[in-house]
Computed example of a mutant assay.
Amino acid sequence: MLMYVICLSALSAQPWRELPANNQDNLDFVKFYNPRKENVKHLRILLHGPAGAAKSCFINSVDSILQERSTGRALTDAISGSSFTQKYKTYKFEKNPGSFYSFVFNDVMGFEKHANRGVRVEDIKLVLKGHVTEGYKFDPEHLLTEDNPGYKTAPTVEDRVHVVVSVVPAGSVSLITEDVVRKMRDVRLAASEMGIPQLAILTKVDEACPEVKANIKHIYKSKYLKEQVEKFHLLLGIPLNCIFLVKNYDKEFKTDDDISAPILLALKQMIYYGEDYLNSL
């Protein structure tokens, strides 16, 4: 009985953020979304953050929800300790053979504390402006320049990033090095200068909080996870209502409504913010 009381003390009586009782509305919004901006077919969402933050796994999780099965197109690695993503890659999500949903994710090499490792902030700034070509391999020791084949000289509105999402493991917020925080902050400031909205997701909530691991429905009742959201808010300055918690599909073989709900909530807000930016251009 004592252990039961201790576990309950880590949870608030009421969630500090409400999840929808039914996923269908959010799922329908995502599935039927189309940019209103003329000549733009896809809203572009850039994921960035420290190496190992589960950016690629989040992409797979969105794909799994849309395909209603486990997927793994974005390759991940759990043991390297450094960024597994090396190239600039766009992920589209197939709706029907030959047609795709109207948003895409871009995955990039992760930030690392060493100067000669991980993606460079200057390269991310070029990504924001649409100057990086598909498949460009990031070089931590050399910046992308205009004379490089990987440089796109005349990007379109669709090539540009429309919303920036910082990705960090929930249990590692206090462990992010000053160098990585500075790099993420630099990206945030660069995006702000361009008017690009920014959100954040804290991943791996089940690894960070035992109560949430036992029941994912407690995700927005966890006092510990709320503290991590507040800490991350202070680190980067991203508003609290723009920071979301998710558990990715990394062990499951089929989708689950309770796991999908926080992912869809975050994704819907990414699309909302990106659409607002597109319409302001």
Rank of each mutant, 00 (worst) to 15 (best):
I238C: 04
K217Y: 07
T133R: 15
Q86R: 15
D256E: 11
F105E: 09
V163M: 05
R182A: 01
K89E: 14
V212L: 09
F84S: 12
R188S: 09
N34V: 15
V181H: 02
N23Y: 09
L8E: 11
N279V: 12
S70R: 14
I79S: 15
Y33L: 04
K226T: 02
Y277M: 03
F84N: 14
S99V: 05
K254V: 10
Y151R: 05
E38Q: 12
D250A: 15
L235R: 06
K213E: 09
V165M: 10
V127D: 00
K89H: 10
Y4M: 12
P197G: 02
V119C: 05
F58M: 14
H131L: 08
G274S: 07
I259Q: 09
G274A: 09
Y277T: 02
S174V: 12
L245I: 08
N106V: 05
E193Q: 12
G135W: 08
N106P: 04
V165G: 04
D257A: 15
N34M: 13
V187L: 13
I216W: 05
H114M: 14
S9M: 07
V108F: 00
H162M: 04
C209H: 02
Y136A: 10
A214S: 14
E275Y: 04
P262K: 08
E230P: 02
I219F: 03
S56H: 01
H131I: 06
R188W: 05
V164S: 02
T90I: 10
L47M: 13
Y224L: 14
D159Q: 10
V119I: 15
L27D: 00
P15V: 06
A53Y: 03
Y249R: 01
V180W: 00
E275T: 08
P197E: 06
K41A: 11
M270F: 10
V181K: 04
V127I: 10
A74C: 12
Q24H: 14
L281Q: 14
L19E: 00
A10Y: 11
T71M: 13
V205F: 01
A266R: 00
G98C: 11
F103T: 01
D123P: 04
E134V: 01
S222T: 05
M184D: 00
P262I: 00
L75D: 10
A74W: 00
H42Y: 15
D206Q: 06
W16G: 07
K251W: 07
K268N: 03
V165Q: 03
N241V: 05
K204F: 06
V157A: 12
V157M: 12
E146G: 11
A51G: 13
I216L: 14
A266V: 08
V181D: 01
T156Y: 09
P140S: 09
A266Q: 03
F138A: 03
I216V: 15
